[in-house]
Design a protein around this nucleic acid. Structure first.
Lengths: 172, 172
DNA sequence: GATAATTGTTATCGAGTATATCAAATATCG
DNA sequence: CGATATTTGATATACTCGATAACAATTATC
């Protein structure tokens, strides 16, 4: 049984090439993904990691994670909402949203204001700096991140992909 | 009903307040996703969570996670490989792969065999039970999980989606 | 007014991912 | 040959997320 000799640089990163059925049996280096390449969830996860990675790179100057960016976007679009409302529409559990808000508030990107009607809840607002950072982040995301995605996929495919993902995300 | 929002992107928040199907009077309006619905990464993540959720449901009788299923698939398709090779092509770091293998081995789904050529490495093999479980899992995945995805998206869209995700996952 | 429900919060747990390090085995090279 | 470096599996550890239970303050309900 001839075991592998050496692949000068074994694959350390998740990136591996895929091989379709009927490919030459070039053993040694590359492993056969087999049915894995037809598994939607597998490619979905891999693609999501790559896309988030690119997002982080593009928006690195502002030190914003995808989750933080989504919070700022939502606060801007929905003023006067409390923590429960913002967290739940983002699929974040209330306990986990506390630390997230703490981080944003400590950077003076948003603020909690006690509601007059209901003194239990905190009305969330973007600060001046928060709006400025969000504006810059939007530009980076549009001009660097999404632009690259559209370039790779093509505009029509990009739109089609978005529609299908939305169907899976919200109607599945 | 209460609100009807403009765009076609109807948001169904993942874990939100309980809304009974016939209960209209919920005065709490739905929040605006805004630019969030155009963010590919956002829908990508959401879709991935939903798809994995469905995978777990469909394959629940066999108690296999997506990651475990991918390992079994890879072992079946690539006999004679060691831990480093299997882990790296799946994007799993070697230290984290140890516990994963322990779990599979403790269930007698696979086994580590010391290699004769290189006594450092463990050749990974599927056991008889592992092959049987994999066969059943493949059927569940194909007939329940993927079948549902194809039904929701349509066969042509499903194929197109897979292709675009592969492009993002492996060429991005 | 007594009881239930909600809001933000803390504590905690488990899963997933990352790095450093180790002993054993092997490879490399002077 | 033998000294050194590299590889393999493994352990320990840490950090991020996601999930649950519980609590004080406040509000809603009966």
């Amino acid at each position: 049984m001839t075991v592998s000799k050496t692949a000068s640089d074994a694959v350390k990163s998740p990136r591996t090439l895929r091989r379709e059925p009927g490919d030459p049996a070039g053993d040694d280096a590359m492993l056969q993904l087999g049915e894995l390449s037809g598994l939607l969830g597998y490619s979905l996860k891999r693609a999501q990691l790559k896309v988030f990675e690119d997002f982080l790179r593009c928006v690195a100057p502002l030190q914003l994670t995808p989750a933080q960016f989504s919070v700022l976007l939502l606060l801007d679009k929905n003023p006067g909402r409390n923590q429960t409302e913002i967290a739940s529409t983002l699929g974040i559990l209330r306990p986990n949203f506390v630390a997230m808000l703490d981080a944003l508030e400590s950077r003076d990107l948003c603020a909690r204001m006690r509601s007059a009607n209901d003194r239990r809840s905190h009305i969330l607002v973007l600060t001046e700096k928060g709006r400025a950072v969000l504006a810059r982040a939007k530009k980076l995301v549009a001009n660097k991140h999404e632009a690259r995605l559209i370039e790779v996929l093509g505009p029509a495919n990009h739109a089609a992909l978005l529609e299908m993902l939305a169907k899976l995300a919200y109607e599945f």
